[in-house]
Protein backbone atom coordinates (compact mmCIF):
# COMPACT_ATOMS: atom_id res chain seq x y z
CA UNK A 1 0.00 0.00 0.00
CA UNK A 2 2.83 2.35 0.88
CA UNK A 3 4.36 1.36 -2.43
CA UNK A 4 1.16 2.21 -4.25
CA UNK A 5 1.13 5.70 -2.75
CA UNK A 6 4.75 6.17 -3.83
CA UNK A 7 3.96 4.93 -7.33
CA UNK A 8 1.06 7.37 -7.54
CA UNK A 9 3.36 10.21 -6.55
CA UNK A 10 5.79 9.30 -9.34
CA UNK A 11 2.92 8.89 -11.78
CA UNK A 12 1.53 12.30 -10.86
CA UNK A 13 4.75 13.93 -12.03
CA UNK A 14 4.88 12.00 -15.29
CA UNK A 15 1.20 12.18 -16.21
CA UNK A 16 0.85 15.78 -17.48
CA UNK A 17 3.97 15.46 -19.64
CA UNK A 18 2.81 12.07 -20.97
CA UNK A 19 -0.55 13.61 -21.88
CA UNK A 20 1.26 16.44 -23.66
CA UNK A 21 3.48 13.99 -25.54
CA UNK A 22 0.39 12.04 -26.63
CA UNK A 23 -1.33 15.23 -27.75
CA UNK A 24 1.59 16.19 -29.98
CA UNK A 25 1.83 12.67 -31.33
CA UNK A 26 -1.84 12.48 -32.28
CA UNK A 27 -1.79 15.94 -33.86
CA UNK A 28 1.43 15.66 -35.85
CA UNK A 29 2.32 11.95 -35.85
CA UNK A 30 5.82 12.16 -34.48
CA UNK A 31 7.45 11.24 -31.19
CA UNK A 32 8.78 14.47 -29.70
CA UNK A 33 11.82 13.40 -27.70
CA UNK A 34 12.34 17.00 -26.65
CA UNK A 35 9.64 16.31 -24.02
CA UNK A 36 12.29 15.98 -21.31
CA UNK A 37 13.87 19.23 -22.45
CA UNK A 38 10.57 21.10 -22.19
CA UNK A 39 9.90 19.70 -18.71
CA UNK A 40 13.35 20.89 -17.67
CA UNK A 41 12.56 24.34 -19.11
CA UNK A 42 9.41 24.33 -16.96
CA UNK A 43 11.33 23.37 -13.83
CA UNK A 44 13.88 26.14 -14.37
CA UNK A 45 11.20 28.72 -15.21
CA UNK A 46 9.29 27.91 -12.03
CA UNK A 47 12.51 28.01 -10.03
CA UNK A 48 13.52 31.40 -11.47
CA UNK A 49 10.15 32.89 -10.53
CA UNK A 50 10.06 31.21 -7.14
CA UNK A 51 13.58 31.38 -5.68
CA UNK A 52 15.42 34.43 -7.12
CA UNK A 53 12.29 36.52 -7.77
CA UNK A 54 10.53 35.48 -4.59
CA UNK A 55 7.07 34.76 -6.04
CA UNK A 56 4.92 32.11 -4.37
CA UNK A 57 5.23 28.65 -5.87
CA UNK A 58 1.76 28.60 -7.45
CA UNK A 59 2.66 31.76 -9.37
CA UNK A 60 5.94 30.13 -10.39
CA UNK A 61 3.97 27.14 -11.65
CA UNK A 62 1.58 29.26 -13.68
CA UNK A 63 4.53 31.21 -15.07
CA UNK A 64 6.30 27.96 -15.96
CA UNK A 65 3.20 26.79 -17.86
CA UNK A 66 3.23 30.06 -19.79
CA UNK A 67 6.96 29.89 -20.54
CA UNK A 68 6.71 26.27 -21.67
CA UNK A 69 3.70 26.95 -23.84
CA UNK A 70 5.73 29.70 -25.49
CA UNK A 71 8.78 27.45 -25.87
CA UNK A 72 6.83 24.58 -27.40
CA UNK A 73 4.95 26.95 -29.74
CA UNK A 74 8.23 28.57 -30.78
CA UNK A 75 9.92 25.21 -31.40
CA UNK A 76 6.92 24.10 -33.43
CA UNK A 77 6.97 27.26 -35.51
CA UNK A 78 10.75 27.39 -36.08
CA UNK A 79 11.81 23.75 -36.08
CA UNK A 80 8.93 21.37 -36.70
CA UNK A 81 6.48 23.18 -38.97
CA UNK A 82 8.94 23.54 -41.88
CA UNK A 83 9.53 19.78 -41.62
CA UNK A 84 5.87 18.63 -41.76
CA UNK A 85 5.59 15.74 -44.11
CA UNK A 86 9.05 14.35 -43.43
CA UNK A 87 9.24 10.84 -42.02
CA UNK A 88 8.68 10.10 -38.34
CA UNK A 89 12.32 9.03 -38.02
CA UNK A 90 13.59 12.36 -39.33
CA UNK A 91 11.40 14.31 -36.93
CA UNK A 92 12.49 12.08 -34.08
CA UNK A 93 16.13 12.78 -34.88
CA UNK A 94 15.37 16.50 -35.00
CA UNK A 95 13.59 16.33 -31.65
CA UNK A 96 16.56 14.54 -30.05
CA UNK A 97 18.91 17.19 -31.43
CA UNK A 98 16.52 19.85 -30.13
CA UNK A 99 16.50 18.34 -26.66
CA UNK A 100 20.31 18.51 -26.62
CA UNK A 101 20.19 22.14 -27.67
CA UNK A 102 17.61 22.96 -24.95
CA UNK A 103 19.52 21.08 -22.25
CA UNK A 104 22.74 22.89 -23.10
CA UNK A 105 21.13 26.31 -23.38
CA UNK A 106 19.87 25.76 -19.83
CA UNK A 107 23.31 24.62 -18.74
CA UNK A 108 24.83 27.65 -20.47
CA UNK A 109 22.53 30.08 -18.67
CA UNK A 110 22.11 28.46 -15.24
CA UNK A 111 25.23 26.33 -14.78
CA UNK A 112 25.14 22.78 -13.48
CA UNK A 113 24.54 23.65 -9.83
CA UNK A 114 21.60 21.91 -8.19
CA UNK A 115 18.61 24.09 -7.42
CA UNK A 116 15.54 23.71 -5.23
CA UNK A 117 12.32 25.61 -4.65
CA UNK A 118 11.89 27.86 -1.67
CA UNK A 119 9.81 25.27 0.19
CA UNK A 120 10.22 24.21 3.81
CA UNK A 121 10.93 20.50 4.17
CA UNK A 122 8.50 18.81 6.52
CA UNK A 123 7.80 15.32 7.68
CA UNK A 124 4.89 13.20 6.43
CA UNK A 125 1.32 12.85 7.66
CA UNK A 126 0.66 9.38 9.00
CA UNK A 127 -2.61 7.52 8.44
CA UNK A 128 -2.86 4.01 9.80
CA UNK A 129 0.86 3.44 9.44
CA UNK A 130 0.99 4.89 5.93
CA UNK A 131 3.26 7.86 5.48
CA UNK A 132 1.99 10.51 3.09
CA UNK A 133 4.14 13.60 2.59
CA UNK A 134 2.06 16.80 2.40
CA UNK A 135 3.61 17.79 -0.92
CA UNK A 136 2.64 14.43 -2.38
CA UNK A 137 -1.02 15.13 -1.62
CA UNK A 138 -0.69 18.42 -3.46
CA UNK A 139 1.25 16.95 -6.38
CA UNK A 140 -1.25 14.12 -6.86
CA UNK A 141 -4.31 16.37 -6.61
CA UNK A 142 -3.00 19.03 -8.99
CA UNK A 143 -1.85 16.45 -11.50
CA UNK A 144 -5.17 14.60 -11.32
CA UNK A 145 -7.18 17.81 -11.75
CA UNK A 146 -5.04 18.89 -14.70
CA UNK A 147 -5.32 15.53 -16.45
CA UNK A 148 -9.09 15.37 -15.91
CA UNK A 149 -9.47 18.97 -17.07
CA UNK A 150 -7.59 18.30 -20.30
CA UNK A 151 -9.62 15.12 -20.79
CA UNK A 152 -12.86 17.05 -20.30
CA UNK A 153 -11.62 19.80 -22.58
CA UNK A 154 -10.99 17.33 -25.38
CA UNK A 155 -14.24 15.43 -24.89
CA UNK A 156 -16.88 18.05 -24.14
CA UNK A 157 -15.88 21.42 -25.58
CA UNK A 158 -16.18 22.47 -29.23
CA UNK A 159 -12.47 23.27 -29.47
CA UNK A 160 -11.70 19.84 -28.01
CA UNK A 161 -13.88 18.14 -30.60
CA UNK A 162 -12.21 20.22 -33.33
CA UNK A 163 -8.82 19.12 -32.01
CA UNK A 164 -9.76 15.48 -32.18
CA UNK A 165 -11.13 15.94 -35.67
CA UNK A 166 -7.87 17.54 -36.83
CA UNK A 167 -5.86 14.77 -35.17
CA UNK A 168 -8.01 12.16 -36.90
CA UNK A 169 -7.74 13.56 -40.37
CA UNK A 170 -6.49 17.10 -40.92
CA UNK A 171 -7.48 17.42 -44.57
CA UNK A 172 -11.00 16.19 -43.90
CA UNK A 173 -11.30 18.66 -41.02
CA UNK A 174 -10.09 21.38 -43.35
CA UNK A 175 -12.69 20.47 -45.94
CA UNK A 176 -15.35 20.60 -43.24
CA UNK A 177 -14.35 24.20 -42.57
CA UNK A 178 -12.35 23.82 -39.35
CA UNK A 179 -9.53 26.38 -38.92
CA UNK A 180 -6.81 23.71 -38.86
CA UNK A 181 -3.74 25.96 -38.12
CA UNK A 182 -5.59 27.62 -35.25
CA UNK A 183 -6.66 24.31 -33.77
CA UNK A 184 -3.12 22.96 -34.08
CA UNK A 185 -1.73 26.05 -32.36
CA UNK A 186 -4.23 25.53 -29.53
CA UNK A 187 -3.12 21.93 -29.15
CA UNK A 188 0.53 22.96 -29.07
CA UNK A 189 -0.13 25.53 -26.35
CA UNK A 190 -2.09 23.07 -24.21
CA UNK A 191 0.78 20.56 -24.57
CA UNK A 192 3.31 23.23 -23.63
CA UNK A 193 1.36 24.22 -20.52
CA UNK A 194 1.23 20.57 -19.46
CA UNK A 195 5.01 20.24 -19.88
CA UNK A 196 5.38 23.34 -17.70
CA UNK A 197 3.13 21.82 -15.04
CA UNK A 198 5.17 18.61 -15.03
CA UNK A 199 8.31 20.71 -14.70
CA UNK A 200 6.96 22.45 -11.63
CA UNK A 201 5.88 19.16 -10.05
CA UNK A 202 9.31 17.66 -10.78
CA UNK A 203 10.88 20.60 -8.99
CA UNK A 204 8.76 20.00 -5.89
CA UNK A 205 9.93 16.40 -5.77
CA UNK A 206 13.50 16.44 -7.07
CA UNK A 207 16.54 18.63 -7.31
CA UNK A 208 16.41 20.86 -10.37
CA UNK A 209 19.38 20.47 -12.70
CA UNK A 210 19.91 20.30 -16.48
CA UNK A 211 20.46 16.52 -16.39
CA UNK A 212 16.74 16.09 -15.71
CA UNK A 213 16.25 16.07 -19.48
CA UNK A 214 16.93 12.38 -20.22
CA UNK A 215 15.98 11.17 -16.79
CA UNK A 216 12.45 12.48 -17.34
CA UNK A 217 12.10 11.96 -21.11
CA UNK A 218 12.33 8.17 -20.99
CA UNK A 219 9.62 7.44 -18.37
CA UNK A 220 7.33 10.08 -19.91
CA UNK A 221 7.57 8.52 -23.36
CA UNK A 222 7.23 5.03 -21.90
CA UNK A 223 4.04 6.10 -20.09
CA UNK A 224 2.60 7.56 -23.28
CA UNK A 225 3.39 4.42 -25.29
CA UNK A 226 1.99 2.10 -22.62
CA UNK A 227 -1.12 4.26 -22.59
CA UNK A 228 -1.54 3.72 -26.30
CA UNK A 229 -0.65 7.16 -27.66
CA UNK A 230 -4.31 7.85 -28.14
CA UNK A 231 -6.08 9.36 -25.17
CA UNK A 232 -5.08 11.49 -22.16
CA UNK A 233 -6.66 8.88 -19.90
CA UNK A 234 -4.42 6.22 -21.46
CA UNK A 235 -1.34 8.34 -20.86
CA UNK A 236 -2.32 8.88 -17.22
CA UNK A 237 -2.84 5.13 -16.72
CA UNK A 238 0.47 4.53 -18.47
CA UNK A 239 2.12 6.85 -15.97
CA UNK A 240 0.74 4.81 -13.07
CA UNK A 241 1.98 1.58 -14.68
CA UNK A 242 5.48 3.04 -15.12
CA UNK A 243 5.45 4.40 -11.56
CA UNK A 244 4.50 0.99 -10.16
CA UNK A 245 7.05 -0.83 -12.32
CA UNK A 246 9.80 1.50 -11.12
CA UNK A 247 8.86 1.14 -7.45
CA UNK A 248 8.69 -2.64 -7.77
CA UNK A 249 12.08 -2.79 -9.47
CA UNK A 250 13.70 -0.63 -6.83
CA UNK A 251 12.07 -2.51 -3.95
CA UNK A 252 12.52 -6.11 -5.05
CA UNK A 253 15.26 -6.09 -7.66
CA UNK A 254 17.96 -3.44 -7.78
CA UNK A 255 17.47 0.34 -7.72
CA UNK A 256 20.34 0.69 -10.19
CA UNK A 257 18.22 -0.90 -12.90
CA UNK A 258 15.35 1.55 -12.46
CA UNK A 259 16.58 3.49 -15.48
CA UNK A 260 15.95 0.50 -17.71
CA UNK A 261 12.36 -0.03 -16.54
CA UNK A 262 10.87 2.40 -19.04
CA UNK A 263 12.55 0.68 -21.94
CA UNK A 264 11.76 -2.83 -20.81
CA UNK A 265 8.10 -1.88 -20.48
CA UNK A 266 8.15 -0.36 -23.98
CA UNK A 267 9.77 -3.50 -25.38
CA UNK A 268 7.19 -5.73 -23.65
CA UNK A 269 4.30 -3.65 -24.96
CA UNK A 270 5.73 -3.73 -28.47
CA UNK A 271 6.21 -7.50 -28.24
CA UNK A 272 2.69 -8.14 -27.02
CA UNK A 273 0.85 -5.52 -29.08
CA UNK A 274 3.07 -4.78 -32.05
CA UNK A 275 0.13 -3.78 -34.25
CA UNK A 276 0.19 -0.24 -32.97
CA UNK A 277 -0.17 -0.18 -29.20
CA UNK A 278 -3.57 1.48 -28.98
CA UNK A 279 -5.42 -1.49 -30.39
CA UNK A 280 -6.08 0.17 -33.71
CA UNK A 281 -3.36 0.67 -36.24
CA UNK A 282 -2.00 4.20 -36.62
CA UNK A 283 -1.89 5.24 -40.25
CA UNK A 284 1.46 6.74 -40.92
CA UNK A 285 1.83 6.90 -44.69
Amino acid sequence: MQMFINALATAAILAPAAVAFTLIFTLFRYANFAAGGFVTVGAFAAWTLNAPLGLPLWAGGVGAMGVCAGAVALSDRVVFRPLRGRSGGTLLLVSIALSFVIENIIRFCFGAQVKGFDLPLTGPMVFAGLRVPKETVWVISISLIATLAVGALLTFTPIGRALRAVADNASLANVRGLPVPGVEAFGVIVAGALFGLSGTLVGVDLAIDPNLNWAIAIPVIAAAIVGGLGSPLGAAIGAVVIGLAEELTAAHFSPTYKGAVGFVVIALVLLLRPQGLLGTKVERK
Binding site: A31, S87, G88, G89, L92, I225, G262, F263, L270
Partner: peptide, 14 residues
Protein backbone atom coordinates in the same frame (compact mmCIF):
# COMPACT_ATOMS: atom_id res chain seq x y z
CA UNK B 1 10.39 3.98 -38.03
CA UNK B 2 9.74 5.83 -34.80
CA UNK B 3 9.21 2.71 -32.71
CA UNK B 4 12.39 1.15 -34.03
CA UNK B 5 14.16 4.35 -32.98
CA UNK B 6 12.72 4.14 -29.46
CA UNK B 7 13.57 0.47 -29.03
CA UNK B 8 17.15 0.91 -30.25
CA UNK B 9 17.62 3.94 -28.02
CA UNK B 10 16.36 1.85 -25.11
CA UNK B 11 18.73 -0.95 -26.04
CA UNK B 12 21.72 1.41 -25.87
CA UNK B 13 20.67 2.78 -22.49
CA UNK B 14 19.99 -0.68 -21.06
Amino acid sequence: GDFLAIVTLGFAET
